Simulated assay, not measured.
Amino acid sequence: MFPTSGDCRDGASVSAYVSRIVDMIDRSGLPYQLTPMGTIVETGSVKEALAVVEKAYEVLGEDCERVYSALKLDIRKGKAGRLKGKIDSVERELGRDVSH
């Protein structure tokens, strides 16, 4: 999620705006992982995930006229801790130690 309108952009960089969203997610207490091309957030429900998206729009909506977002949802009932678990699963397949 990032602003596309000219008044919110400093050249090609949108990191100041992305950092607002990451700060909001961090303060929410939800598990998340920042990556170079997006942020992964683990929630317990679709409703909770969409609430994070809505709050992110509010954070940027204060001074950004147009905002782009792309969402992917991976829903698996009864599973938590998947941010680390999914990576550990691949690492085990590669024969690597995941006891860290």
Results as ranks from 00 to 15, higher is better:
residue 6 G to E: 13
residue 16 A to W: 10
residue 58 E to A: 09
residue 42 E to F: 05
residue 100 H to P: 02
residue 13 S to L: 13
residue 11 G to P: 04
residue 66 R to G: 05
residue 95 G to N: 06
residue 29 G to W: 10
residue 56 A to K: 10
residue 31 P to N: 12
residue 25 I to D: 01
residue 8 C to V: 02
residue 5 S to D: 15
residue 50 L to E: 00
residue 13 S to R: 15
residue 47 K to S: 12
residue 40 I to A: 12
residue 57 Y to D: 07
residue 61 G to N: 06
residue 17 Y to S: 13
residue 87 I to D: 03
residue 2 F to Y: 12
residue 52 V to F: 00
residue 29 G to D: 10
residue 92 R to Q: 15
residue 83 L to W: 11
residue 41 V to A: 02
residue 46 V to D: 00
residue 35 T to K: 10
residue 25 I to H: 02
residue 76 R to V: 06
residue 14 V to S: 07
residue 8 C to T: 02
residue 12 A to T: 13
residue 17 Y to V: 14
residue 25 I to Q: 02
residue 59 V to R: 03
residue 35 T to H: 11
residue 54 E to N: 11
residue 40 I to V: 10
residue 66 R to S: 15
residue 38 G to R: 04
residue 8 C to L: 03
residue 8 C to A: 14
residue 68 Y to N: 15
residue 80 A to K: 15
residue 48 E to C: 01
residue 11 G to N: 05
residue 78 G to P: 02
residue 12 A to R: 10
residue 80 A to N: 11
residue 86 K to V: 11
residue 34 L to E: 14
residue 6 G to C: 06
residue 20 R to K: 14
residue 95 G to I: 04
residue 19 S to N: 15
residue 2 F to I: 03
residue 86 K to A: 12
residue 93 E to S: 11
residue 49 A to H: 01
residue 56 A to L: 13
residue 85 G to F: 05
residue 44 G to T: 08
residue 76 R to S: 04
residue 98 V to T: 13
residue 12 A to G: 05
residue 53 V to M: 04
residue 30 L to S: 08
residue 46 V to G: 00
residue 96 R to I: 08
residue 83 L to H: 14
residue 77 K to F: 00
residue 70 A to H: 08
residue 30 L to C: 08
residue 22 V to W: 08
residue 47 K to F: 07
residue 77 K to G: 02
residue 39 T to E: 04
residue 86 K to I: 07
residue 84 K to I: 13
residue 34 L to D: 08
residue 24 M to A: 09
residue 85 G to T: 04
residue 54 E to H: 15
residue 72 K to Y: 07
residue 55 K to Y: 04
residue 77 K to T: 00
residue 28 S to E: 10
residue 55 K to Q: 13
residue 74 D to T: 04
residue 52 V to M: 06
residue 54 E to F: 09
residue 16 A to T: 12
residue 70 A to Y: 07
residue 19 S to F: 14
residue 94 L to K: 14
residue 14 V to P: 00
residue 52 V to I: 12
residue 55 K to F: 00
residue 17 Y to R: 13
residue 7 D to V: 13
residue 100 H to Y: 13
residue 26 D to I: 02
residue 8 C to P: 02
residue 34 L to H: 06
residue 28 S to I: 12
residue 22 V to Q: 10
residue 77 K to C: 00
residue 76 R to N: 03
residue 4 T to Y: 08
residue 89 S to Q: 11
residue 46 V to C: 02
residue 48 E to W: 03
residue 30 L to H: 11
residue 23 D to Y: 01
residue 47 K to D: 09
residue 80 A to T: 14
residue 90 V to G: 06
